[in-house]
Simulated scan of single mutants.
Amino acid sequence: MNLRKIIVCILMLMVLSIPVSVWAEANQTQTITDMAGRTVTIPAHIEGVLGTSPPTTMLIYMIAPDKLLGWNSNNTGFLPAKYLNLPAVGGWFGGKEGNYESFLAMHPDIILEGYNQQGDMKSTVDARQDKFGSLPVVGVENSVDALSYEKPIKFMGDLLGESAQADKMITFYNSVLDQVQSKVSAIPESKKVTVYQAAGNDGLTTEVKGSPHSQLIDIAGGINVVDEPLTDAFGEIKVSMEQVMTWNPDVIIVEDANLYKKMFTDPSWSQIKAVKDKRVYLTPKTPFSWYDHPPGVNRIIGIPWTAKMLYPDEFKDLDLNQLIKDFHLIFLHFDITDDQIKSALNPVAS
């Protein structure tokens, strides 16, 4: 036997000695049913993932940060540097159109397409699959219902092989929800505070009662003064300053720092009870909003925050700072400091 044949035989023996499991793993797939009811074949071992919109992407990060390949937009602060500096690949959200080539260039194993319960969910996800070709697209319900986050968290944990992490998140979520709901249920209707949610440059854009964007008011036991019909899936409407004066809310919730500051200097806003009593609250953001935009799992920490803002006496024993620390460790994989908590809770002063 010449040298060439000997080498060939050795190479063949080396190949045959590789465990079958290694070969199988390289080509192994699994078939799942996604949350839109579609049957999808995906890799058995998922290492890299992208989401098409912020609520989905946030949930990927919270469940499996090392599998997230990129954000939909840039973030600032309150995340470990190696995750904060992931590239921004865009997406399909807020009227924006993503770029399919940008997503494909990141070589993800799967794409996660978030959807809500409005419209034909399956057709929406199928349309995205057509554009991505052979790259699997998995539909994940981005529940805009803050009372229903458990289901998408569990699905994502199972999908990405991080069930233990999902269980930690669900335990925290159920705990804060139970704490708030049990206390709120004991508040008499006559003692409940009235709340106005202000948005837009002039503060006259708001959300009607029943809108997912104002849901934390209801969960925290407040009465949304904008008791108008919910005419679409989300409930944003414009109102007049005269109408706000008529409502004269006890509390105002604001997401924009400039609007927050304006309310204390504007002659019209200064007449409102909430402004006079200094019960205007600017929602924290670390780096995702605690209150809304988007109305995803980022709002879980906003449930106790909103309750404590509306009812400081009833929730005086609720250790908000500890909940903030726990939330950031469990959900954001970030060890937030006391100074950072103070900054988050007082964003204008910061």
Rank of each mutant, 00 (worst) to 15 (best):
S343G: 09
H328C: 12
F315W: 13
V297L: 11
K342A: 13
D319L: 07
L310V: 15
A344C: 09
V297Y: 10
A344N: 01
P294Q: 11
P312W: 12
L320K: 07
A344Q: 03
P287H: 08
I303V: 15
K342T: 15
Y291H: 14
L320E: 04
L332K: 10
F334L: 00
D326A: 03
R299E: 14
T286H: 01
L282T: 14
L282K: 10
V280A: 13
L329A: 07
I330H: 06
N321W: 04
H328V: 01
L282M: 14
S289D: 14
R299H: 06
P295C: 05
I324T: 14
W305A: 06
T337Q: 06
I300D: 02
I324V: 15
I324H: 01
I324F: 03
N321F: 07
P304E: 09
Y291V: 09
P304M: 06
D317A: 14
D335V: 00
S289C: 09
L320S: 09
Y291G: 07
D292T: 13
V280R: 09
G302C: 09
H333S: 08
N298L: 10
Y311C: 07
P294E: 11
H333M: 10
L282D: 13
P312K: 11
D292Y: 12
A307C: 12
W305P: 00
G302F: 05
I324P: 02
L332P: 02
T283Q: 05
I336Y: 01
T337D: 07
L310M: 15
D338H: 05
G302T: 05
L318K: 04
I324C: 01
F315M: 12
H328T: 12
I301D: 01
Q322H: 12
G302H: 06
K325D: 03
Y281A: 02
K285I: 08
A307K: 08
D313G: 06
V297M: 15
L320N: 03
S289G: 15
K285P: 01
L282Q: 13
L323C: 02
K316P: 08
K325I: 12
F288A: 05
D339S: 14
M309C: 09
F327G: 00
K342P: 01
T337I: 05
R299W: 05
H328E: 09
W290S: 03
Y291T: 10
Y311A: 06
I303Y: 03
N321P: 08
K308F: 04
S289K: 08
W290K: 00
S343H: 06
L332W: 04
T286Y: 00
W305I: 11
Q340L: 05
Y281L: 03
K308V: 14
I336R: 00
L320G: 04
S289I: 03
H293E: 09
P284R: 11
T283E: 10
W290T: 02
K285C: 09
Y311G: 07
D338C: 05
I303F: 04
T306S: 11
V280M: 12
I301V: 14
H333E: 04
A307T: 12
D313Q: 15
N321D: 15
F315A: 14
P304L: 04
W290E: 02
